[in-house]
Amino acid sequence: MSTTLGSAHAEAPPATADGYRLDTWTRAGVARALVRTVDGAFAARGQVAITGRAFVVDQAETDPAHQRRGLGSLVMQALVNIVAEQGAVAGVPVATPEGRALHETVGWRVLAPLTGAMRS
Rank of each mutant, 00 (worst) to 15 (best):
45 R>E: 14
20 Y>A: 04
9 H>C: 02
96 T>Q: 07
62 T>V: 10
19 G>E: 04
7 S>T: 05
18 D>T: 13
7 S>I: 01
19 G>A: 07
41 A>V: 12
27 R>A: 14
32 R>N: 08
93 P>R: 02
3 T>M: 14
82 I>F: 07
89 V>K: 09
116 G>M: 03
78 A>Y: 12
66 H>Q: 01
7 S>F: 00
80 V>E: 13
22 L>G: 02
36 R>G: 09
39 D>R: 01
86 Q>D: 11
83 V>A: 03
109 R>M: 13
46 G>S: 10
60 A>T: 10
56 V>A: 06
55 F>K: 00
84 A>E: 06
69 R>I: 00
38 V>D: 13
55 F>D: 00
58 D>M: 05
75 V>L: 02
85 E>N: 14
17 A>M: 04
50 I>H: 01
48 V>E: 02
89 V>E: 14
21 R>C: 12
18 D>H: 05
84 A>S: 14
57 V>E: 14
73 S>R: 10
88 A>H: 07
67 Q>H: 10
20 Y>R: 04
18 D>A: 12
85 E>I: 11
62 T>R: 04
1 M>Q: 10
84 A>V: 09
58 D>V: 03
2 S>T: 10
44 A>W: 08
105 T>Y: 08
112 A>T: 12
34 L>C: 03
39 D>A: 01
91 G>K: 11
2 S>V: 06
33 A>M: 08
43 A>V: 06
44 A>P: 12
66 H>T: 00
53 R>T: 11
72 G>D: 01
72 G>V: 00
57 V>S: 13
1 M>A: 11
91 G>N: 13
66 H>G: 01
114 L>W: 12
101 A>W: 01
16 T>C: 05
114 L>V: 12
59 Q>R: 11
37 T>V: 05
36 R>E: 15
48 V>N: 00
16 T>D: 01
41 A>G: 10
119 R>E: 09
117 A>D: 05
115 T>N: 05
5 L>C: 07
28 A>Y: 12
65 A>P: 10
40 G>L: 08
15 A>M: 08
22 L>A: 06
102 L>K: 07
11 E>M: 02
77 Q>N: 07
53 R>F: 03
29 G>A: 05
61 E>V: 11
67 Q>F: 09
90 A>V: 15
69 R>L: 01
40 G>P: 09
13 P>M: 00
29 G>D: 07
59 Q>L: 11
23 D>S: 06
43 A>I: 05
83 V>E: 00
115 T>F: 07
120 S>Y: 15
33 A>I: 08
25 W>G: 13
92 V>I: 15
101 A>F: 06
6 G>V: 06
102 L>T: 08
8 A>P: 03
56 V>I: 08
103 H>L: 09
90 A>P: 09
105 T>D: 11
22 L>S: 03
21 R>A: 15
90 A>E: 14
39 D>L: 00
18 D>P: 15
55 F>N: 00
90 A>Y: 13
63 D>W: 02
43 A>T: 08
19 G>Q: 06
18 D>I: 08
45 R>S: 14
38 V>F: 03
23 D>L: 04
26 T>D: 12
51 T>W: 08
69 R>K: 01
29 G>C: 08
75 V>H: 01
